[in-house]
Write a protein that binds this DNA or RNA. Structure first.
Length: 107
DNA sequence: CAGTTGACTTGCA
DNA sequence: GTGCAAGCCAACT
């Protein structure tokens, strides 16, 4: 049977379901996975994420995009996400609102 | 096996 | 609101 340690596998499933024009935080995803402490592992998984994964919709808790990947900002803008002048996304309006049950159905 | 790293979060100043 | 330090866990060296 599959290993339960497929942290990245679950993370991919969630990120894959992020709707266009929406963003999610690493902590948000980790929380949905049931391990809010593993927020770093989410980012680690994103770094190793496959190309089909819309990891550009994943940002940190302040709305900052991934370091070393400034182009992520442009990708989000193309989906309708508006950035502030400080380089942060307006999480107040673009944070992905999803319930635990929505995720449970995906897993 | 032990130490370091990191696309994070929270707490405090 | 901004900045620094601590905590946390998996993967890498």
């Amino acid at each position: 049977m599959k290993k339960i340690s497929d942290f990245s596998t679950k993370a991919y499933r969630i990120v894959e379901n992020i709707p266009s024009g929406r963003v999610a935080t690493y902590g948000q995803i980790a929380l949905l996975l049931g391990v809010p402490q593993c927020s770093r592992q989410v980012g680690q998984a994103m770094r190793n994420a496959p190309p089909y994964l819309p990891c550009h919709r994943v940002v940190n808790h302040i709305g900052r995009v991934a370091p070393g990947w400034p182009e992520q900002r442009r990708l989000l803008e193309a989906e309708g996400v508006v950035f502030k002048e400080n380089g942060n996304v307006d999480l107040k309006h673009f944070i992905w609102r999803v319930s635990q049950q929505e995720i449970a159905a995906l897993l």
